[in-house]
Design a binder for these strands. Structure first.
Lengths: 339, 339
DNA sequence: CCCTTGTGATAAAACGATAACAGACGAACG
DNA sequence: CGTTCGTCTGTTATCGTTTTATCACAAGGG
């Protein structure tokens, strides 16, 4: 049906290998033949079969991204669209396609990855989240398969990864609240098995310790990266006999849940509770009151991750394994002084 | 390097075709052989090479999505993440992978699609936007390549597409404003070459005409699907000698731009200007004041589009070419009566 | 004039699977 | 007991490329 390299060769009166050489710009081939073949290719509307090409070249010009498990919840949070935006911008500039893989259960997720890797479906993989002791990471390491981690690996220092300095970022956010006069500061964390939760919690603790402030275990709550979790955390905090006057929230989306809850209950922000979130979502600016947030350069993270991966695929050796994207405090009304 | 079907065959003492048959669950093969082969496959960690398989089967178990051109701006709007969420949920359930293609210029976009189609890289394509007289659509039609359009085609009625009834949706939104007592109603549209802009504008006009209300050309403004466009539209409206008392805005994101601008200028919503948007973004609820919006079921659109495409790929013939996802008015504070 | 060198092109062997065709073998049937 | 049939499995061709080895031929050197 479709026109193949053989058809072109026949019509041009040359062998298929000659056509192949024309395509790949082989040096030793006469200008006359090059022109003739190119003309005929254009005329016949020839396009190489990608599968056949990959089969022999063992290369796909495709990178895969592994979405954290429940892709369904996932996109509620602007983090993923934004990081993908960075990835797709870079990868399309370098003519790589992007294949998205996901599985509902953890088992399915691993299987999908194995399919991609062992089936030679992609040249490299981007992992969009870092968990503690991630089986995916170990698998890819053992296979010596090119991959880049968004976030960081606790276990292995040599893994390619791009991340913020989340400890420092959270430290900065907490310091900011302290500088606004707060003394009782809470923390709404994410799933404890994520490295980012751990890091941001550490930064929060470090800032408090350094300022000689107490940190009651009651003031630290774990949840998901969803509005609902923020709502619940807020309910809990506000029911405490001695409640925090400000909180650091691991993610803007969670912060919006807090905000919504507080409004429903008639509390005022920042008077009754100061808040600062992470990610500086576009929404943060529009919320009531506008939400302070740590901008972590998500787009940049995605762009850099793609860059590192493609460099790695092309065999570049001299590369820092860890890229750190700078963060930036964006102070808005939600964290102004309580008085 | 990697273990192939031949290796498995050798070790099992059978021919490669037998192994292939075991994999594909061929009926006439003895249980004894099946077990032995399966065991050895597991033992050797065999996974079929996807490229080789596609090459001979002419099938990839992959669907492509074509992002509208500047993917960079694109993800600012929650529409795309949300529609992709629907797509990925369905496609991963049916074991199809998702390949994202995009190009910076219109030319590149078309080239990318040709590469995917002619290179037999994907089994089908999802077009995420409908433009008037889209060259992509014509190309795919001529190639008889399976594809589904998100939106609708002006020209061809037989094209598979999933859409809202945007005329009706916009009509409903406008009627709603009229029912709140508004008599001077404006419209902020999107790029005029998009079918969705056209349809929503038509619905707006229809509602006004039916209510015997005037619609000054000054009250209709075109822009992009970006906050910035809303901001500009707002500036223009508020500078008019006779300005609208309410507006229908083609997209929530644009609506937020309007909202932000009004706040900056000290105007009150809905007292000074009533607003209703489209898409019912999560943000709409959090804005100040909460933004009324037409919920068009974006997730459902994506899910259905994937469903239709995969059915089409599998050769299903009895299918309605046009799926229409119902919409729903979500009234919030931004469109309450002006008095 | 023979031998080396260099250039432009071809033939043939992969790559890793699937599928059409064919064969072996035991059972069933006349 | 020979023929036919059904069940299981092996042979072989094929998918559309790239790549390695090879070859023909002309030019240059001794």
């Amino acid at each position: 049906m479709a026109v193949t390299i053989v058809d072109v060769a026949k019509r041009a009166g040359v062998s298929p290998s000659t056509v192949s050489r024309v395509i790949s710009g082989h040096p030793r081939i006469s200008p006359a033949t090059v022109n003739k073949v190119k003309e005929i290719m254009a005329d016949m509307g020839y396009h190489p079969n990608v599968m056949a090409k990959s089969l022999v070249s063992k290369t796909t010009s495709t990178i895969g991204i592994v979405l954290p498990r429940p892709a369904e919840e996932l996109f509620q949070n602007m983090f993923f669209p934004e990081v993908i935006r960075g990835i797709v911008t870079h990868s399309s500039r370098t003519s790589y396609d992007l294949l998205m893989a996901t599985g509902v259960t953890e088992r399915e997720e691993l299987e999908a990855v194995i399919r991609l890797v062992k089936g030679r479906r992609v040249d490299g993989l981007l992992l969009l989240h870092s968990r503690k002791r991630d089986p995916l990471v170990n698998f890819l390491r053992e296979e010596h398969f090119p991959f880049v981690l968004v976030g960081r690996s606790e276990e292995h220092a040599d893994i390619l990864s791009v991340d913020n300095d989340n400890v420092q970022a959270s430290y900065d956010a907490t310091r900011h609240l302290i500088s606004q006069g707060h003394r009782r500061i809470g923390f709404v964390s994410g799933p404890p098995n994520l490295v980012v939760s751990m890091d941001r919690l550490a930064g929060y603790r470090q800032a408090l310790a350094e300022a000689g402030l107490a940190s009651s275990p009651e003031w630290i709550v774990e949840g998901e990266f969803l509005q609902e979790s923020g709502y619940q955390a807020m309910s809990f905090f506000m029911s405490l006999p001695e409640r925090p006057t400000a909180i650091v929230v691991i993610d803007d989306l969670v912060g919006f849940g807090v905000l919504r809850g507080l409004t429903e209950l008639g509390f005022k922000v920042p008077q009754d509770l100061g808040i600062i979130g992470f990610n500086n979502t576009p929404m943060a600016e529009l919320a009531t009151p506008p939400l302070s947030s740590v901008d972590i350069g998500i787009y940049q993270i995605g762009y850099t991750a793609s860059q590192m991966l493609i460099r790695r695929i092309k065999g570049e050796k001299t590369m820092q394994p860890r890229a750190v994207i700078p963060h930036r405090l964006v102070v808005r009304e939600s964290s102004l002084p309580p008085v």
